[in-house]
Write a protein that binds this DNA or RNA. Structure first.
Lengths: 341, 341
DNA sequence: AAATGTCGAGCGCCTGAGTGA
DNA sequence: ATCACTCAGGCGCTCGACATT
């Protein structure tokens, strides 16, 4: 049904290969100016669209890159990366691992058969390190955004985001504002702290922050909770009910949870900022944060995405080149939720 | 690099076509039980993965369906549809049109070249009707979720969702609770009402609702606003500031905007439910709605997704069959945000 | 020596027709 | 005749190796 090169060839009286060459922007066996025009005219007239499968099969690449996400809700990332890749003539296909290590490995496994030129993984999982290695050995190009780990420990092209530093900075900031009983709500961080583990991510930052300001860490200040605002609400409510004096501030792991925590604080009859400090860690331009004027350790999403794409481009241009790593600093956006003025 | 049928053939001493047949579940030229076992063993050992491009090229279909979304944030839909299609052995690729009619047309245009077997479009746009027709004529299978239009006017396989009825029902409900000055905030609906147009979607429901309870429609009660909670907040704030007595309830077009409206109401010193009724239209299981206990006209997302997929299956099984249409009723989930008790 | 155009093999897989038991 | 398997052409496109000016 679809229009093929053959159709254009018939229509113009040229051969399929000539048509192919005329349409491709490549240089070497250039096509003549006239033929070119003729071909383009015919292509437009017939509504030709190159068949991506055939092209991929013939070239051994698809101009397609996979975007591996822990969840589908990383929308600003998807959008940004899509935009940047578009400029390189690449198309992006998102895949969600739903936070399952296994599933991520399985997805990676399925990618070569899809002929994807590269993989951008938004969340480096140390647990899958060997899997990543294996896939690189098979020729896959992998680019990572690293959140939990130190990028020194990551033997791949990657962008580091200073999340653990964020907790430290937020604690110092909250401490400077007079808060002394700072809870950590949600995420792996809260779970780690509750279990007395301080060797990675938020938990490490939590520890470092307390050390920096000379406060002892209380593992009871960790409030683990499931995903979503409702669970965050419940967790915060309970935390505030059981002993209101245990907390005078919360660091909330994600803006999503923030919505729940805000309500819990309000319901407890507390005023945000004055009675209860609030801060979170998230992407820049997070609507909830500006709506509720919440202090944020803001990840530079735009630069991170741009960085990921440029790493990708480097890697595609020079598959054997040295590994590149970039570290981006987040910004402390101090707002009224954490000021006692 | 990747393992091909050829590799398995070499490994087992069989021919490529035998291997192909042994691996395919099809029936006709069955392979012998022993060969089958041998082939599967070799495939597993070598880690064979069929090349999707080659397969698509040879079969003329890709076992892939496109999911056309107005925005990337229809996450529950994506997830559900993905799950159901998975059971049919189909893979889904999401494409976002960002609410641009043009872009949607362009996307559709690009799909045949990707050999997608079908398209599920989450938002039927009457403006693109001719484009849809044209693509069906070219053999594309199209399935729609219809929100704004009457499904009688939609000549395609589709699921209807009773959104306009929702506004009517919500108005009747709010009226019964004693609310008399009901605003409509956000979306096409608000824009239409503000412009005095009542011929479709929310605007029609707004009109019908008022008629049903015998209240006159005030076009000034429409509060148009852009996407996102921050814009909704601003719009609601202004509406409440300019003349607080103009409104005693809001119907909010989407749960996203709801977050902003709630804050605006709180900031105005009003109590939700008592001073100001609130209701919204959204998917079932919307976290914001249960968190803030907001009355909702709840779309049956799960059934809609299941329906879309079953329509799809029908269409694939019988491309020439008659058009099917399904109409799903939403449910009124009455909560405290709209009760004066 | 270019510049322009054609040939044809082949990417990995499927499948109708054919071979031999 | 059935069963088990192989041959070979083709899906639409690319690209190295020629042929023609």
């Amino acid at each position: 049904m679809a229009v093929t090169l053959q159709d254009i060839a018939n229509n113009t009286g040229l051969s399929v290969s000539t048509v192919s060459r005329a349409l491709s922007t490549e240089k070497s066996p250039h096509a003549g100016e006239q033929t070119r025009r003729k071909v383009f005219a015919a292509a437009a007239k017939l509504g030709y669209r190159p068949n991506v499968s055939a092209r991929a099969l013939a070239r051994g690449r698809s101009d397609n890159v996979a975007l591996l996400l822990p969840e589908l809700d990383c929308i600003p990332y998807i959008h940004q990366i899509e935009t940047h890749l578009d400029e390189l003539g690449l198309h992006v296909t998102p895949f969600a691992s739903h936070w399952q290590t296994e599933r991520e490995a399985e997805l990676l496994e399925s990618l070569p058969a899809r002929m994807l030129d590269a993989v951008i993984n938004l969340h480096y999982l140390a647990a899958n390190k060997d899997v990543y290695q294996e896939h690189r050995r098979r020729g896959q190009r992998l680019i990572f955004r690293v959140v939990e780990e130190d990028i020194e420990d990551v033997p791949f092209d990657c962008i580091g985001v200073d999340v653990d530093k964020g907790v430290r900075v937020l604690i110092e900031h909250l401490h400077a504002q007079g808060y002394r009983r700072i809870g950590l709500l949600g995420g792996f961080g809260a779970t780690d702290v509750a279990a007395g583990r301080f060797d990675r991510g938020h938990a490490r930052g939590y520890m470092q922050g307390h050390q920096a300001v000379g406060m002892p860490v209380e593992t009871g200040r960790a409030v683990p909770c499931g995903a979503g605002m409702v669970e965050a609400y419940e967790a915060a409510r309970k935390a505030l009910a059981s002993g209101r004096d245990d907390f005078d501030a919360f660091i909330v792991q994600s803006p999503d949870k923030l919505t729940g925590v805000i309500k819990a604080v309000q319901d407890a009859g507390l005023t945000i900022g004055r009675d209860m400090g609030l801060a979170t860690i998230g992407a820049e331009d997070e609507p909830v944060c500006s709506l509720y004027d919440v202090t944020t350790w803001a990840q530079p999403v735009y630069r991170v995405c741009k960085g990921l794409v440029s790493l990708l481009k480097n890697r595609l241009d020079d598959p054997e080149g040295p590994i590149h790593k970039i570290y981006y600093e987040s910004t402390l956006v101090a707002r009224s939720s954490s000021s006692r003025g």
